[in-house]
Design a protein around this nucleic acid. Structure first.
Lengths: 204, 204, 204, 204
DNA sequence: CATGAATGAGGCTTCATTCAT
DNA sequence: AATGAATGAAGCCTCATTCAT
């Protein structure tokens, strides 16, 4: 097929892989090329510069992951169910950490590169909106519907997610995170039990 | 003070300031020397290499800040009071962002430098322990005393803190954070009102 | 015209235009291709390498221009008339500076490329000969006929021309050049008046 | 002595030598370093960038040469004598062609570099003024004093000089230039003989 | 103890050139 | 004939680090 698009994809994936494996500091034109098995020059054939490749890679991987989460969560209104599904998604992310790690490295990169930072902000906004929606579905029809600041809670969820990523990034200890899910679960069940007296929505 | 230690301190502070102002990418031996008004060569007289200076600077600033927080929070057992004091500390941190920014940049640096990463972990552990203690004081004497996973909650607090820092780092929008405190406040009051029926502990 | 030759011509003209517009430093295989609206690869289909294209382009434009000058000057034997015609040709060259600029850029290129240098020498020799002929027509039949070193004077004319081009190249101030013609004019009239007592040759 | 200034001089001279020997195209940070026997990095320790080094080198060599010419020509008012001295200076320049060649290469460089071009213009202006002065001394006290456009003639002299340099640059044939002096000499003698009837000015 | 000039490895990027289509 | 994607050498420049003073 279009050889152009194919190589472009190879570049994007090589960039993600290199970020995940070598870290942002180790992500140079040469190292990306080595990872992908092509000449450093190609990068500049397809992208303005290295920054542009990283930005494109972020967008690429972020959009795919966002769509997947959206589908997996569906229009779930049950807190315990939501936590459970998130735990599964999280486990999945941990099995192939490429995406997560790459994003974390780009948070790093944003210190130096305004363009990466801008793209990252878009990424964050997108997830923030996603989380806000989930919270709203949770409180809809409960006594808290009108008093809960969904947007703030959504943002806290994103902050939590980023913070947890940073922790993982720092010590690579995943077990503690699984225990976080365990910690939250009882609270979710509590919520489902008492917040309730609403009309149950059929799950999609 | 020994002249040796004095210069060492100038180095540490110059490193922190440079990290905060120029970002990790702009923190070179030369830029640190420029900030501090000394020759690049001195760094190598006092430290093995640049990494060692950064690690030492992190430890230096982190310990000072940790001690200050410890004192400011005292042995506070009242949730609303705790949130209020944290809000003040946070506001203070925002007024002189040097420390916070420098640490955030070092999170960045940890991508490349194992030694910085190791030091950061120590830093995180220290804060994690600090948060765990605060949570334990909160639940002590309540019905939840035995069931609350204080350690996990402490870790979540740290994650939250890191995530919020990352968000600030990315878009510099601090106002949203103040609104987070506002969001949490009612929950704290709720807690203080109902978790109660415990023997009040004398404040230190 | 053979399609082969047609494309070749597009290459030559694209090369000249690119040299004139982008300068030698900006004349790359890609920029020439962009100017001419073809793929970089074609160049190598028609020419050994980039140098060969430049050499051919120089020859191409130089011969055309030389023929045009030859015709315009005819067999003029009147000094004032000669100066006047040269002034017109010069003005014409300035209106479409492509040729002049391209050659000037190739003088530049000769620093790096022996083949361009060789071709330029041929070009110079050709113009030198042209100038020598003009001088000889001027002195023919006068008392100076046998003593004037026409070849040296011709070479001085070429040097003058090159030097003036360099000046233009450097500061782009053309007005000064027009004033040079004005400076020379009286001398030409003087010559026509006193060198004379020869049999006038019919103009062509 | 001041190690700084000493190295700076080594850089300037290495730049001139490299320009003269390798041509502008061959004058890279690496080749200059090789010529001077130092590491490429030093260049950037002493100069903003390569362009800055070349500009400085041009100024350095140009000023020295200009001063030398000034002294050698003195306030000579005799045309034949002037030509003779110029011929000597020229021969001298040819014996150590470093300066001349370097300048010629920089004329070339001016195509690409605005800063080199600007410096070159200053250089040209300086020589133009120098030539204008010489012409004025020649016509002073003669019948032509008021009608001769010294400035234009000065500029023609500079153009002539540049053009001759270009010719040398292209074919390296110096002999022809020597014959140019021979060609001009009779004219100079003629001038001295007939332009005269002026009050002789004491030499200096 | 401190200085700051010098080193040289390595980063980003450009470009002539080749080659499969 | 022509295309245009890919190659890889080489250019400029920065920076951690060393070392003579």
């Amino acid at each position: 097929m279009a050889p152009r698009a194919e190589t472009r994809n190879r570049l994007l994936e090589a960039a993600i892989r290199t970020l995940a494996v070598e870290g942002y500091g180790g992500t140079t034109a040469r190292s990306i090329a080595r990872t992908g098995g092509f000449a450093p020059g190609v990068i500049y054939y397809h992208f303005e510069d290295l920054e542009a490749l990283l930005v494109a890679a972020l967008r690429h991987t972020s959009q795919a992951r966002r769509a997947y989460y959206e589908e997996a969560l569906g229009s779930c209104t049950d807190a315990a169910e939501l936590i459970s599904r998130l735990r599964d998604l999280y486990a999945e992310d941990m099995r192939d950490k490429g995406h997560i790690d790459a994003v974390q490295e780009l948070v790093t990169a944003s210190a130096t590169s305004p363009r990466v930072r801008a793209e990252l902000l878009a990424h964050i906004d997108s997830w923030s909106e996603f989380a806000t929606d989930a919270v709203q579905r949770l409180v809809a029809g409960t006594t808290f519907e009108d008093m809960a600041p969904s947007r703030d809670i959504g943002m806290m969820a994103v902050a939590m997610f980023l913070g947890v990523q940073t922790l993982i990034h720092l010590d690579g200890d995943r077990s503690r995170i699984q225990s976080l899910f365990a910690t939250v679960e009882p609270a979710a069940i509590l919520w489902d039990t008492f917040a309730g007296n609403r009309t149950p929505t059929p799950d999609k």
